[in-house]
Design a protein around this nucleic acid. Structure first.
Lengths: 152, 152
DNA sequence: CCGAGTATCTCGCTGAACGAGATAATAGGC
DNA sequence: GCCTATTATCTCGTTCAGCGAGATACTCGG
């Protein structure tokens, strides 16, 4: 069995990076009177509207993404609505559904906090050539898929 | 301002990977009757004993690493002790302190669950040459430090 | 050997998330 | 066009992680 010292170092780096990113999110949460779950919800909403595929997010879909049951989902949306970060809008086509819309100021709040970190990451990436970027992309894609696929 | 589409794609990949890794940990937690915090505690204990620097972990140090106050720390150690994953050992040199030792079977449990994912990551990394590995290492290091340093 | 300091634990409380079930709206069979 | 099954969300009551305050146990310098 070869010794994987170099590879294991990177695996631990990845874990350390995820831990720090998690703590960074937690700082954003507590600094704005939110819970980690609320931040995850905001990020999910921003993702949905950016990737545009299905720009409108229902309460149910949001809850499923966060792994919450319906009661918990209601509570998250309540908290975010109370802080003015989202609005509940009845879907006129299917009036059973409630669309959750993110407020523009919540998006700005997020950018103000996470922007510098994202900017730093982009800056780092600009220092690499095509082949190096492909390696980073390939590794992250592989890890994401391995973690996502291992749920059986 | 250049358009950073390629770089932003990687930033989002990183975030997606961290989300999936977090969900993977959560699966380990709920499958073993633990809370996410308990898993973080076990990982912190394993890290400490692996990096060896200061192999013995006190209750207080563990709580600080997890960002818990003393009451919460006591509760985490209580839960892990009840499950048999850790032992409390009074430090004979300074009898105010309680050393938290991880049980060998908890380590095995962790390896059984996270081993395949780690193995897959190592496998991915084996497909890259020195320069590509350096790029991955450099990017992860930079992101970790940027996230850790941005707490002011 | 006493008082200040340090490490951990106990108690009572708040609030996130859960399970069960209520409410409201839609869709399809007849 | 109505009635039933289905879907989406919300309400109620409970559990339990984590917090603040303070109690307890131990150490160490003067």
């Amino acid at each position: 069995m070869p010794d994987h010292e170099r590879e294991m170092e990177i695996v631990h780096l990845l874990r350390a990076a995820t831990v720090e990113l998690g703590l960074h999110s937690a700082r954003f949460a507590s600094r704005n009177g939110m819970h980690p779950t609320d931040v995850r919800a905001l990020i999910a909403l921003m993702d949905a509207s950016r990737s545009g595929s299905d720009a409108e997010m229902t309460a149910g879909r949001l809850g499923a993404l966060l792994g919450l049951n319906s009661a918990g989902t209601t509570a998250v949306v309540d908290r975010l609505e109370r802080l003015g970060h989202v609005r509940r809008v009845r879907d006129e086509r299917d009036r059973r559904r409630v669309l959750v819309e993110i407020d523009e100021r919540a998006v700005e709040l997020g950018w103000a906090f996470f922007g510098p970190l994202i900017g730093r990451a982009v800056e780092l990436l600009e220092g690499y050539d095509e082949r190096e970027l492909a390696a980073i992309r390939g590794f992250l894609t592989g890890v994401r898929d391995a973690a996502a696929g291992a749920n059986r």
